[in-house]
Simulated assay, not measured.
Amino acid sequence: MLRAGEDLLQVEERLWVLSAPTGQGIYDFGFDRFFACRRPYQLPASLEVVARVGVWNDYEVRYRELAAEGVTLVHSPEQHLLATELPHWYPRLTDLTPRSVWFDERPDAKTVEAELGWPVFVKGERQTSRHRKSLSIIEGPAQFDAAMAAYATDPILHWQRVVCRELRPLRRVEEGAPDRIPSSFEFRTFWWRGALVGWGPYWWQGSPYTMTEAEQHEALGLGREVARRVDVPFLVVDVAQEVSGRWIVIECNDGQESGYAGVSPFALWRNILDLELKRSR
């Protein structure tokens, strides 16, 4: 049942976690270093599991494999797509996020210009390629054609559908490296069964920044509304502030696959465990 490197743990007798190291400090967390954990001698007939193994490119296959052994991932394949891919979550959030279009085949510049004009923000349906500015913030047709040529061979982007989004004026934190998307006033939020369990700066490695109490009220209120509309058990919502002061949704993700960014992983899992204790009573 377990693949190489995977470990199945019951954490604090409240939550089953399927974990595996990825080598990424922003993602990995040693559950048994911080919480009381046990490995099962014998599995119960059925159990629900949160996966923290990185990204499975064959999520549906893995879901079926585990289900055959009585292990149910916290997200069904349908919920995983809803949380992860923009074409699935965008229709529920059209009033909260920049206008977006996507294409099954890489589009030409004329098509994108007719839909959105210039400039545009371009990404894969799941993610960018290491936040590269030259492949994301596109000012005109020539740059777009060059980006599409790069998308065809990029190891992260070549298999994803192309998404083009209205480029909104975001409040900047810092410019960053020459070919990196500028750091905006953006925050990552984690939601467990609709409840907030963690938030922190998305651009956690640069200049420190945080929200005022009033900003928290608006930003986290937006995240809560997104969690209500998307309605999956473990959701990540990234929100950012425009220069006008308006808060918008940047993207959603499956909490099983998402890095912590500036969120404390210990506090995140402590909050989830506390919620699971309440559910069990």
Rank of each mutant, 00 (worst) to 15 (best):
S136P: 06
A177D: 14
V50P: 02
P87S: 10
F103P: 09
E125N: 15
A83P: 01
I156G: 06
G259L: 10
V55Y: 15
P21E: 11
T111K: 12
Q127F: 07
V197G: 00
H80Q: 15
R229Q: 12
V122A: 14
A195L: 06
V53T: 15
Q127D: 12
R180E: 15
G23D: 00
T212R: 00
L15K: 03
V61C: 08
L2T: 06
P208H: 07
F266K: 05
L93I: 02
P201V: 04
Y41M: 11
R62W: 01
C252E: 09
T72G: 00
F34A: 00
W192S: 01
V55R: 14
T94M: 12
F103E: 04
D231N: 15
F31I: 09
P155W: 09
Y59T: 01
G124P: 11
A147V: 14
T210V: 08
A45L: 14
A150S: 10
P21G: 00
S76M: 05
I26P: 00
F35S: 05
V173N: 10
W192V: 01
R279Y: 04
F35W: 06
S129D: 14
A109D: 09
W247P: 05
F121V: 07
T97V: 12
R165E: 05
L273D: 04
D28R: 01
F121G: 08
V49W: 01
N57P: 10
R106L: 12
Y209E: 05
K133G: 00
V71H: 09
V162C: 11
R33D: 13
P98Q: 00
S244C: 09
V263W: 03
V101R: 11
L8G: 01
H80C: 09
V263A: 06
Y59K: 01
G262H: 03
F187V: 03
G25R: 12
V74T: 10
